[in-house]
Computed example of a mutant assay.
Amino acid sequence: MGVDPHLLRTFVCVAELGSFSAAAQRLGYTQSAVSQHIAVLESDLGTPVLQRRPVAPTLAGQRLLEHAAPILLRLAAARADVARAVAPQPAMHLGVTSLALVPGLAALLPAMAELTCAPRDEVVAGVAAGRFSAGLVAGLAAPSDPLRLNDFGPLHRFPVGQAEQVVVVALALDHPLAGRSGLALADLSGAFWIDAPGAAVPLSDLWPMPARVSTRLHGDDVLTLLALVAAGHGLALLPQHLAGTAGVGCVPITEPRLVFRVEAVATSDTDPLLELLRQRTVVPDRGGL
């Protein structure tokens, strides 16, 4: 038994919006067509996937949702891969996480490249689906481990080893730990953090330590993050090249051994970005902003 991807896409849209009429408007269908799609899907699966009032996934629908997003993404990735095989390649359009473009790495990019800054999962998904020609993502990892990325399909990953940096804790200059030469994550178990996944190393990378959050920053403005740190609103994890900013102290993480790593992701091993990185040495700038 196979599930028609058009029906699956309609189901995901209705479940996301909680409305048949809103889903119809977004998808460009009539409401009756959306209702028919769901009825056919439920007949195919032999069970209801949506309760009607209010509109919400049933238990079976919740299970289907867990599979639907990666299925639809893989289909989009396959379609983009076929398109790339038969059509001229567009100009380089890179998806990048806010901290991935360390200064030495930025110097490698061609002058006419187009960049879009986005969270890590969005960059990887965008590369898989063909929205970006390639991506640059960053995060914490053990010295010999790759970054932990969600599986959005078969992608080629290239660790930009020369861009690896020491991980530092950014804190206010008058913080009790500001004068330390190094810190273990265990030393920070009771600390308050600024949750800023777009502007700092995501707190979800702080395995296995749960983080106590005092302030949340949405977006990728690193300068705003540093101003919050300097004002004592909480700690943040950053790569070493951002150390030395006025009003902010930075102490290296010494235990466990972690590095700030940048990886390039692409759908082809011969992608122009990967070729550039293989040919050139990336030396990060160790200065301030």
Rank of each mutant, 00 (worst) to 15 (best):
L17E: 08
E42S: 07
F11I: 06
F20N: 07
Q62V: 05
L8H: 13
I38N: 01
A39C: 04
S19M: 13
Q51G: 13
S21F: 00
V40H: 06
A24R: 03
R26C: 04
T10Y: 05
E16F: 11
G28P: 04
A56F: 06
Q62T: 11
S43G: 14
H67L: 14
L65G: 07
L41T: 07
E66P: 01
Q31M: 08
H37C: 09
L64Q: 04
R26L: 14
F11K: 06
L65A: 08
L8V: 09
G61D: 06
E16H: 13
Q31P: 03
V40A: 13
L64I: 04
P57K: 08
E42W: 03
G46H: 05
V49F: 10
V40W: 08
L45H: 01
Q62S: 15
P54S: 13
A15R: 11
I38T: 05
P54D: 02
Q36P: 03
V12F: 03
A33Y: 14
A56I: 11
L41P: 01
P48L: 03
A23Y: 12
R53N: 13
S35D: 15
T58V: 13
S32A: 15
R52P: 05
F11N: 02
L45P: 00
V40P: 00
G46A: 08
A56Y: 07
L41G: 04
L59S: 15
L8W: 05
Y29W: 13
V49M: 12
S21L: 10
Y29S: 04
A33K: 10
R63Q: 12
V55A: 05
A68V: 07
L59G: 08
S35A: 15
P57Y: 10
L8T: 07
C13N: 10
L65C: 07
R26F: 06
L64H: 08
L50W: 10
Q31S: 15
G61R: 09
S32L: 12
A39L: 12
A33M: 13
T10L: 08
S35F: 13
F20D: 06
S43Y: 10
Y29P: 03
R52H: 14
V40L: 13
P54F: 05
T58C: 09
T58A: 09
T30K: 01
S43D: 09
V49K: 00
T47Q: 14
H67N: 12
T47G: 01
G18D: 15
G18R: 06
G61I: 08
C13Y: 02
R26Q: 13
A39V: 13
L50R: 00
V34C: 02
V55I: 14
Q25P: 01
L59Q: 15
E42C: 02
